[in-house]
Design a protein around this nucleic acid. Structure first.
Lengths: 200, 200
DNA sequence: TGTTTCGCATGACAAATGTCATATATATGT
DNA sequence: ACATATATATGACATTTGTCATGCGAAACA
């Protein structure tokens, strides 16, 4: 099978390519260090499978996966990510990816997963079963935007200017976000939301 | 040369081990997924070099490096890290490590660096030259502690209880940290300090 | 010894924050 | 058409935050 690898961390990308290339039935035909380059390569090389990291510059792996669906490419997608954030997993499932692996898994799982996906199956890291039961992001779009800006240190005033809302409204959104996340103040709310991957 | 690898991300650890083991002159004699395990393995196996990730559970790679110096082990240290945070690099240099590589570098650099260090040399990723000129952490110990707790959402009151200080003193430390980091409020200060790796 | 610095503390004050009750206009569903 | 939900806004209030001036004892140092 013909595979391309998109992963921004050079060492991991190189190591995975080298190892996968040693398998008789796997050929790594391209490597990308960001999502944009990945899309170009997929367009150019029409691989069977692309292995996508999520956190990459320009376009994330999830962005790429969604693009592939929108453009109706045959290329199957296996996501490879560090964190088992519920938000990531849910978005990946909605994009119809075929595999979702954690970088924590042993390497053997990687080639096994690629084969399973190549044969039309699905492959999900077992640790992720838990994520299925994790809470979905309870924040509305507005609450997310506001909380994200708050995380950069902006005051309610500044946020209101930024989003064309009134300062009071911003405080209401923040208050609501704090309540939903069961936090004591905006800072804890930011920490909690970040840990769950709800601000990306 | 006999090497042990400490890296918490299973896939990278496995991939690096496999690749390094293929080199004729390198033998990976042990793997650890956290700093504590790494120390035990080094004690048990007395390798020539240990390859240490920084961000690991229980003990970080820098903690391990400092322990090795304190215990006067012969084992040389090569740090492998994601971010070129100035704080990390400076602490590593103070601990007398022999190599400091970025996970962004190509894999070829890894075996090359191990050989150079094994032969008594030093190996530092070229991108890190920049870090030498980056600002040193301007925060005092107290300011760091206070800011770190603030980052978890604790109020000045709660922090004061935690560190056995008065609430007023805590606010003074926070105020000072905010001034030093040129931030508008504690939240921006937390964001800035985190980005520079000054809270670890 | 005296002087300076450092770590910690206090009090006062303005500004920002978090909470609530309430209001309006638009959209949605029946 | 009517009821309901949603997005946004306001005002009032107590609490927390950020700043600053100042005080005190211990360590460092001349």
């Amino acid at each position: 099978m013909r595979v391309i690898i998109a992963e921004d961390q050079g060492m991991l990308r190189g190591a995975l390519s080298a190892l996968l290339d040693m398998e008789d039935d796997i050929e790594v035909v391209g490597q990308a260090e960001n999502g944009e380059k990945a899309l170009e390569l997929i367009d150019l090389l029409q691989p069977d499978i692309c292995l996508l990291d999520i956190e990459m510059p320009i376009l994330t792996g999830l962005d790429v996966a969604e693009q592939l669906v929108a453009r109706r490419y045959a290329c199957k997608v296996v996501i490879l990510t560090t964190f088992s954030r519920s938000g990531y997993f849910q978005r990946a499932m909605r994009a119809g990816v075929h595999g979702f692996l954690l970088k924590d898994a042993p390497i053997d799982e990687l080639s096994a997963a690629l084969r399973r996906v190549y044969d039309g199956g699905r492959a999900v890291s077992p640790e992720l079963a838990i994520s299925l039961w994790e809470a979905e992001n309870p924040l509305t779009d507005r609450e997310r935007e506001v909380l994200k800006l708050a995380g950069e240190g902006l005051s309610a005033q500044e946020i209101s200017g930024n989003l064309h809302l009134s300062a009071g409204t911003v405080r209401n959104y923040l208050s609501e976000a704090i309540r939903k996340l069961d936090a004591k103040n905006r800072i804890e709310a930011i920490a909690i939301a970040n840990k769950k991957g709800w601000l990306d």
